[in-house]
Design a protein around this nucleic acid. Structure first.
Lengths: 357, 357
DNA sequence: CTGTTAGCGCTTTCAA
DNA sequence: TTGAAAGCGCTAACAG
């Protein structure tokens, strides 16, 4: 018998196991050695059967596949990864809030990675300090690359370069370090939104911003303020939320507590816009948009529901996730590829939550 | 020098590498050999440093930790897993729809697994046929266990037993095979809901059900029909949706197309209830709940928004996810544990979408 | 086309 | 407490 003799296995060559009639007779999953034994070939022949471009005789392959099926064999991804230095694993880092309020992104990323035969190792970040622990796990698992939709410091981004782990940032860019990223253009989108509100004659604005550590949130808030300032509208009050419905609702109430004469409230996310709309209607008995215009950002599911129909900017999530996955895979394939930043333009959604004339 | 000589490494003992001043001088991540070399100990000493209950002298440990930090070393999870037969990886299987409409579950599961030092390998299923491919990947990656919130056939469940891979089903039970599971009691919840509608004098019902392959959807639909039948209300029309907002909206319209005299519409999910409420208001100009009562199920986020306030049954997601994770971890620790089924009672949410008197 | 061989980086006896 | 040695299951030269 070809296999077994001279192998490193502990059982001597003569002591060949009987045909394994039971599934997993020895209590462990079958290995390529078991398959080789049964098919009467060498272990490496079995390995070749599962290699995309291996040279193996059709007849041999058939015998091996048969034996493998009888045994219920499938290659051990750990061993494959250990030797080939390719895990086919990508870590997706996502802040728990984003995961809750924007699940479409995760669903799309997962699907697109799966299509490329890549598995997703999911990390959900809530607290800030957690990031370092998560990164440690990322290194330990030798993932082929990382897609990050959570806050990373420049030092942390630098670690990816040091370790040659391809990284693509989602809806954020790094300040100093150069990292590949895919974003929806918050500046253009928010400017567009504000411009339309101004054109419709809105004069008294309020802003419901996101947490300070949110990249897109801050970008949208700054753009809103700046655009208004350029039109001579200064000192626009800002309150902060956490992207949640509740914080949109309390945000509006906080704004109104000081001064209830708003024309328009700019929310940096749809979820908060919805909260603001509900608070406007329920708490202040306002008609939206006749008495108060509310705009959001994202174009996420509930924003289109007929009770809200939020005037907003829709992120092209499908194209963005596809771009992120493509960029990452390219960098896994060719580590020398330079950092690239892809900026997608959001689509204005007219909705019914803002007076547009 | 202790390490290096006699090791299996290809570089001869004499050809010792110079002190590695650079991070990852050889272009690869440092291994325990590199650390051993630098700390002047054997590779196994380094390994012990990262073992919870190893016997190692404090002084030695310190030298090793120092060297490890200088090199930026962290253990290779692949190699650890390969030899120790423990990956600290759990696969989470979730249907893409569930992922979209019920992200809280994924977030909670991930968080609770992370706390237990377990990583999540995420698989999102859309089509039915995909399951077998996903399972193949699950086997290949030698996960320690699986939490499944997607449809699995009895044969597929049997594969987990054959391979001794612990499995916990989430919000579903297996028909014949015995698998551990965590569920919210749809029967009790739906019966409660229907009972309250009946008590309030509703007479003419319609049901918006889920897809036929949804376990909870069908359970809720059957319970609703059955409970009504027991009160003498027969032939309740049923239309099917896919749990989405849109299908709730079109579902109501389909029901009304035949007969617009409904008292109450029972939706098997909140998302569809919301769609039905909006369609009732927008399309049919109905007041909810004065003209039409709508009830849902789940108690998911948007259901509590003030525009909807869906009368529903809230699943105790926190307790359910904790139970699922605990059950799985117990079975990873002790494979001989018998299958167990934990049923949680949902909480009735009175809401404002159904007339209750 | 096929088999032999040498490890991937680590844990775990077994001696010392 | 420590080191040497033996693999975990696999890929990838290298010969033949």
């Amino acid at each position: 018998m070809a296999a077994g003799s001279g192998s490193k296995r502990s059982k001597p060559a003569g002591e060949v196991m009987p045909a394994e009639t039971e599934f997993r007779a020895n209590g462990r999953r079958p290995t390529s050695y078991d398959v080789a034994l049964r098919a009467g070939v060498s272990q490496s022949a079995v390995s070749r059967c599962y290699s995309p471009n291996a040279s193996i005789a059709p007849a041999t392959r058939e015998r091996i596949i048969l034996a493998a099926n009888e045994l219920g064999y499938s290659p051990n991804a750990l061993a494959q990864a250990l030797i080939s230095r390719r895990t086919n694993l990508v870590a997706v880092l996502i802040s728990s809030l984003t995961m809750l309020y924007y699940p479409e992104v995760l669903a799309e990323l997962t699907e697109r990675l799966t299509v490329r035969n890549i598995r997703v190792l999911l990390f959900s970040l809530h607290a800030e300090g957690e990031v370092d622990d998560v990164l440690d796990q990322v290194w330990r698992h030798s993932v082929d690359g990382v897609i990050c939709a959570a806050r990373l410091s420049d030092e942390q981004i630098q670690m990816f370069e040091d370790r040659h782990v391809p990284l693509v940032l989602y809806n954020r860019v790094s300040g100093t370090a150069s990292a590949a990223s895919v974003c929806c253009d918050s500046v253009a989108g928010e400017r567009d939104l504000i411009g339309k509100l101004l054109a419709a004659g809105h004069k008294k604005f309020g802003i419901i911003a996101g947490p300070q550590d949110s990249y897109v949130g801050e970008e949208r808030r700054e753009t809103a303020s700046e655009t208004l300032r350029q039109s001579g509208i200064l000192d626009v009050p800002v309150v902060r939320g956490d992207f949640s419905y509740e914080s949109g609702s309390t945000g509006l109430q906080a704004l109104m507590a000081n001064d209830a004469s708003f024309d328009a409230v700019v929310c940096v996310s749809d979820q908060m816009a919805i909260g603001a709309i509900d608070a406007g209607r329920e708490v202040f008995r306002l008609r939206i948009p006749e008495d108060l215009s509310v705009v959001g950002f994202d174009g996420s599911g509930p924003a289109t529901w007929s009770s809200y129909q939020v005037t907003s900017v829709r992120q092209p999530v499908q194209r963005m996730t596809e771009a992120a996955v493509t960029m990452l895979v390219e960098r896994i394939e060719d580590a020398s590829l330079p950092a690239e930043r892809r900026l997608f333009t959001g689509q204005f959604i007219i909705g019914r939550s803002a007076r547009m004339a």
